[in-house]
Design a protein around this nucleic acid. Sequence first.
RNA 1: GCACCGGUGGCGAAGUGGCAAACGCGCUGGUCUGCAAAACCAGUAUUCACGGGUUCAAAUCCCGUCCGGUGCUCCA
Length: 492
Amino acid sequence: MTLRLFNTLSGQLDPLIPLDGKALGMYACGPTVYDYGHIGNFRTFLHIDVLRRFLRLTGVEVRQVMNITDVDDKIIRNAAAAGQPIGAYTAPYEEAFFADLDALRIERPELIARATDHIPQMAALIERLAKAGAAYRTDDGSWYFRIAAFPAYGKLSKKDLSGMEDGARVDVDDYEKDSARDFALWKAAKPGETSWETPLGRGRPGWHIECSTMAMEYLGESFDLHAGGEDLIFPHHENEIAQSETATGKPFARHWMHVRFLLVDGRKMSKSEGNFYTLRDLLLKGYRASAIRLALISVPYRHPLNFTFDSLADSTGAIDRLRTFRARLVSGPFPEGQNPALEAAALAAREAYRAALANDLNTADARAPVFDLVRSANTAMDKSEFFLGNRAAVLAVLEDFDAVFAVIADHDAEATRRALAWARGSGRMDSVAPELVASASISDAEVDTLVAERNQAKKQRNFARADAIRAQLAAKGIVIEDSKDGTRWKRK
RNA sequence: GCACCGGUGGCGAAGUGGCAAACGCGCUGGUCUGCAAAACCAGUAUUCACGGGUUCAAAUCCCGUCCGGUGCUCCA
């Protein structure tokens, strides 16, 4: 089943197939490590994760490169303010970024590339552009890309640049450039700033050249897919295309995927609006990592997502339903035999699920057949019409679902535990939800003991004691479920 | 200002010409249970911002209006 994915460059759904017939080469713009990642960042990374997981589910090998921008103006400024070398300043944020990816079950790209490890290659690419007459040096020692050298400029963002020419609306005198639209390739070092000695002079790379260089270094001059947040379309990705294609004369990325923005309460998330959340903020409020993941991927990537706390509660409920069902499916017991109607339903569900994802990664649509099957299977179980022979096919649907959505298998406790350890280590315990502290104060073994004691009390029909234990556990966020096959419990 | 996107039930959201509109959450009632929880059943939009139009047929296409958002600058 071939994925048809919207291509910003062509403006239509295009099949996404590896150019070399082996592995899909994709480059995703990664983080600038000057702060903790917020949920808007992660919406983008999560949808890229959905993409790569779906490709692999359908048998397409993936070679993904992600950059880490570990040098830029903000980093240089903040590190200087902290009196640290930039590497010492960025290291903890880079580490936090990877911890956050783990919490959200975002797979690691095959290759991580740091900007500071590729300075010579960047300088070489700029020299190549200079030789082609597309880059020039200004008096202060900075280098710029000459947009006039690339007539196709604007083809990705579909901008008509004729209305943005130098003149009335842009004060050219503010820039030491030939044209106001020309962008920086290399920034000359200012006294005391972190810089590198290169044939171009002392300085540091611009942001755009970083991605062009590393993408081509690891994926070749032409490759399959370039992805990122919608805000990168212009100017970042437009500039990458201009630089790369001018240098090589070949098409850069064939396919461009852009994830639309996350809004919070209907507005763009920003620190000044007071609606800004990092992943850590949410974990420490007691929301599960899996619920955050599901909430951020359930709205397809080409629609803006309006994030609310209701959406997290919604996702928590949906995940509980799936997990409870999976536990019931695995534990049985079911009689020998086979229910042909259910078997057919399972096969159809799997087909519909994959078809929905193959249609431009329609995650919302893909959920529907899975939940439909859960209901049919539960109904069959209630009526004793579910047999041992049905288990594998139904389980296969859940496995397909989790291969992409990755929320049924429960890794939440670990993510929360780490967030708590981080809060403790960085003096943020006052922002932790009290329920979370309460839940963390009781171990699984202690819960098991209390549950056993409650079962004993129930057997003796001492319901007062049994209910008291249930209430005690509930206060720590533990929910108890009795069934004829025993008592299950879970953390809320 | 220019450009783009969107307005579907209590909430999120799919659906872009043809069965009175998926799925999830929530709520109400029922079954089950010592009581709960879980699960199941039933109910929860005759209708898709509004006004025109095209069509045998429109939530879906066209025109207009209103409302919301985003981009045009660092930004996922």
